[in-house]
Structure formats: C-alpha cells, structure tokens
Design a protein around this nucleic acid. Structure first.
Lengths: 221, 221
DNA sequence: CACTTTTTTGCGGGGCACGCAAGTTTTTCG
DNA sequence: CGAAAAACTTGCGTGCCCCGCAAAAAAGTG
C-alpha cells in the first residue's frame, strides 16, 4: 500500500478543509433529520465539536453550510468537461460531463428523497440553493469558454445557465416523482441541444436577426 | 370629473395592495441609495408610515421586499404570452412575450444601473433574486403548458427555465457592460431556440454512449 | 349604531451574524 | 531546539431580524 500520504498541504490547510467538510456534513445531516428550522447553529457546532462562533468563521449562515455540497460540485464538473476529447461536439461533451458528475453521486434512497422534497419547501434554502447553482454555473461558463476557445463569452454563459436549468429541472422532477435522475437529465440536455423541437413541434424556425430598438427597463431586472 | 371609481375591490383590498407596493418601493429605493446593509426594516416601515411589525406582515424579509418587483412581473409575462396569435411558432411567441414585457419597463438611467451593479454583489439579495426568478419561471412554465396544450410538463419547465436563464444572462450583461438589454435578450432567445449553433459550431453531433459506473456518494443534489 | 371580520401594532422571545480582543495552535527561522 | 510571527479559535457583547400573541383600531355589514 501507499506509504505516507505526502501532505502537500500544510497541516493547517488540511485541518481547515476537514473542519469545513465536517460542518457542512453535520449541517446537512441534521437538517435532513429535523428540518432546517429545528437546527440551531449551536447544534451544528456542537456536533463537530467547535464553538458556535467558529461555525461563522466558515459559513455565514446555516443555509450556506447546507448547500455547500452543491457548490463543491463545480470542481468535478470542471475536470469532467476538460477531460472530454478535443474534437467532440460541444453539446456531447457537456452532456457527458454533466452525466459523469451526477453518476458518481450516491444512490437515491427513498427516505432520503422524501426528506429532500420537504427541504425544498423551505424557502430559506431555496435561495441559497439557487445561489449555489449560480456558482457552479459560473465555473461551467468559464470552462466552456476555455473549451471552445474564448469566443463570445455571453453565449458561454447562456449555455452554462441553461445547462444548469436542465439539471435543476431534472433534479426537481427526480425528487418529486421518483423517476430516475440520469435518463431525464440526458433527455433534457438533448432537447436543449436541439432547441426543444419536441415542444416547439419541429424545425420551422427562422434564424432571422431582428434589429428592433425598443425602450428599456427600470425595476430591478 | 369622473363620477365614482367603481371600487371593484373592497377598500380593504386596495389599501392592502397599496401598502405592499409602497413597502416594496421604499425597500428598493432605500437599498439603491444606501446599500442593503444600511437599511433596517424600521427605516422601510417608517418611510411608509407603518410599524416595523407590519412590514413583516407583508414580507418575511427585507430581501423579499426588494425583489418583489421581479415577482410581480409574472403577471405581465403570462398575459403577454397568452395574447400571442394561435398559429405562431412557440419560440417566436415566447420571444415576443418576453421582449414585450421588458419593453414596457422604464428608462435605464446611468446612476441607477451603477447602483444595481453594486446590489448584485450583495449575496443576501442574489438568493432572493434568484428565488424571485424561480417564481416567474413557474408561471411561465404553466403558461407555456397551457399554450401548447398540456403536453410533457417536464419540457415546459425546461423551456421556461432556460428562457429565464437567457433573461438573467442578458440582464447581467446589461448592467455590467451597459449594452442595451433588448437586442441581447432577443439574440440569446434565438440562440436558445436553435440549440446554440453559434457556439457549438453547426449541427454535427453524434451520440457516443459512455458508461462509467463510479462509486457513490451522497449530497443534496 | 352595534356587531363581525380583518389589519395593525406593541411586546417579548429566540436566534443569528459579526466585530473585537484575548487565548491557542501551527509555522517559520535564527 | 526554542522563540517570535502568523493563523485559527473562542467568549463576549451588540444590533438586528423574524415571528407568535393578544389587544386595539379600522373597515365592512345590516
């Protein structure tokens, strides 16, 4: 077996990562068990054996801790996408990367799914959850840009954003209906790649640039 | 002068709506002026002339109040989409509906844009902002479903979701670069409808299955 | 004008997030 | 090695937020 894990990272760094991981995990576990409103920061901290104050050195809110799992995914996503062969069509690469990433994550587990379903009712979480997805989206956009060679950053963001849309929709469908996640995901990505012909009823579209200059907006967005 | 405004809605209802609107507006105005962290609930309430406690009868957080403008859009979006002619291709209808909705909103105003840019840095807001978009997304999905005749609800959600993605991306681009919003929006929606050919470089895609069964983990999504 | 229904408000409680200033490690270096 | 430097943890105190509750005020009803 391997002799010593050569600690590339200073002991400090390892401890830090471990603490963060432990806190996130505890937060998620407790939340799934009791529901977010019945988990105090103190509980999470105690579970891990640190002071409540320390919790806030790592996360600025409970919600953030619970959702940090989602954020951590961006790393894997990035690697998976960059690992795809050079000549492969972009949509195929993205699809495979996404599927790869979600394949390596656990088995559904009934009770677990049920809990998640409840969790998503928690508005507090939804905001942070979406926020986390937005973070992944960013990384994905960058990676796509790198992959296609830095053209049109706007479109890269659009693609990343709609891919994450597909993921979210598939995910929601999964825990609401118990249909398997991956097939749905695959299907949705294919639809995206084709402009959703199934819905729009064929290919009668006209890519005709329309340059109408209309007034603009006020309000937040 | 006009005789009597026939108050379809009981006086009560009007007051309620007005209060809500006033609170949201005050919240947004103050936040744009000073930044969210320098606005207390008390300030907003005082501005409108109600007690702080009353604020929480309308909104469960400052963030929610600020972002309620976004949520209110779903109504207009729904109407605009349903108003499109019957035979029109779906993507065209959606595009026009979205553009219509965003056309009817006020003038940009430099300083205003700058403020918004800052605001989006506020993480507190981003979560609620995305949440608001999610609400719009829901309504949009339903409306699309109604429009196409209730087929495949999953795809409707995907479409709604990716349309909102386009809106968000266009919006971010707008306040980050000062490029006009509507043309960008239009372009992105066209790209979506065509499967983003500009990025993917044409239509040469070939499905190549890759079955990597990797270990399992557990995570939120 | 009494009577009902709905909304507003004050009060109080439980928590959360964070700045600050000690304590405690870990790391660096002479 | 051993002491100074850098980084992390912790307790404490503060300000604010969200909400339940019950009394007061306002709007609708006949």
């Amino acid at each position: 077996m391997a002799p010593d894990e050569p600690p590339k990272l200073t002991l400090r760094e390892r401890k830090k990562r471990e603490a963060r991981r432990a806190l996130a995990q505890a937060a998620l576990r407790l939340t799934l068990e009791r529901g977010l409103e019945n988990v105090r920061v103190e509980d999470i901290a105690t579970e891990v054996g640190v002071s409540p104050r320390t919790f806030n050195n790592y996360f600025s809110s409970k919600e953030q801790a619970v959702c940090s799992v989602v954020v951590d995914r961006h790393e894997g996503m990035r690697e998976a996408l960059l690992a795809r062969p050079e000549g492969e069509p972009l949509w195929e690469s993205v699809k495979q990367a996404v599927i790869h990433q979600y394949s390596r994550e656990g088995e559904p587990d009934r009770a677990y799914v049920a809990r998640i379903r409840e969790l998503m009712g928690q508005l507090m979480l939804r905001g942070e959850f979406l926020n986390a997805h937005a973070a992944v989206e960013r990384v994905l956009a960058e990676t796509i840009a790198k992959r296609v060679g830095g053209v049109d950053h706007l479109l890269c963001r659009l693609m990343a954003s709609s891919v994450e849309s597909a993921v979210r929709v598939a995910f929601v469908n999964w825990f609401m209906t118990d249909e398997p996640l991956l097939p749905t995901l695959e299907r949705l990505l294919d639809e995206l790649a084709a402009g959703m012909p199934t819905l729009t009823g064929g290919t009668d579209r006209k890519p005709e640039p329309n340059t109408t200059t209309t007034p603009l907006g006020e309000s937040l967005c």
